[in-house]
Design a protein around this nucleic acid. Structure first.
Lengths: 110, 110
DNA sequence: TGGCTATTTGGCTATATTGCCAAATAGATT
DNA sequence: AATCTATTTGGCAATATAGCCAAATAGCCA
């Protein structure tokens, strides 16, 4: 792998890594519906505020969300709705895996 | 986040995490083109064989690739070509980030 | 000003990931 | 059988990630 290539793959991996966490997936899904402040997301996730704040900074750092201060709160929005297209494929993979499991079970019973 | 919800998000995150690594991105891209054995991928990546083997087992464990033994070698194939749809969105994010950088630079010069 | 509310930051521990080496395994070849 | 090739596994050290608490910061409100 050449150096230039490596840089490109690393940049892509950084984006995808930012998405690859249960809480951050929830955040992305919710922000795709509507903008939310840290407090609201914290309640939905049920973790410490600081933890959620850090998740948001990971997403922001990857360029996936934008934030805007309004009044006392900071509202986060999803910058790239296309991310949700991801999820369809992920579900496909999960469905395929479930199908495999089913077939394995069936084979075992024989 | 309810327990059931959490399980779902964790399952999704596992798939996405499997994709989120530079070498594994290269592997996915290459397998989308054609099936490859561990040795071939190892050469392309330029890491230890054992390292590549482990990357492949991560992908396999997530259900993203399948393997088939033929002769002396084990050939890996991509199970879900839809993953490549991911990449378009990732590139969009990277382009948007680059655009931001450019604007920041421009603002600084003033 | 002083106290709220919302959010971020620093610090720490626990856990997970990565990547190398060496050794084990499995087939193919001689 | 002995060897060669391809791959996986175990073990280890380095690094990264996650999540909590406590403390810092910033704007609002009385």
């Amino acid at each position: 792998m050449k150096k230039t290539e490596k840089t490109i793959y690393e940049a892509r991996a950084k984006i995808i890594k930012a998405i690859a966490h249960p809480s951050r997936l929830l955040i992305i899904e919710e922000l795709q519906r509507q903008e939310r402040c840290v407090n609201e997301l914290t309640e939905m996730i049920g973790a410490d505020t600081s933890t959620v704040s850090k998740h948001l900074s990971v997403l922001k750092n990857a360029g996936l969300v934008a934030d805007e201060k309004r009044g006392n709160a900071i509202f986060y929005t999803l910058r790239c709705p296309c991310i949700m297209g991801f999820m369809g494929c992920v579900e496909e993979v999960l469905a395929a895996n479930a199908e495999d499991q089913k077939n394995i079970m069936k084979a075992c019973k024989k």
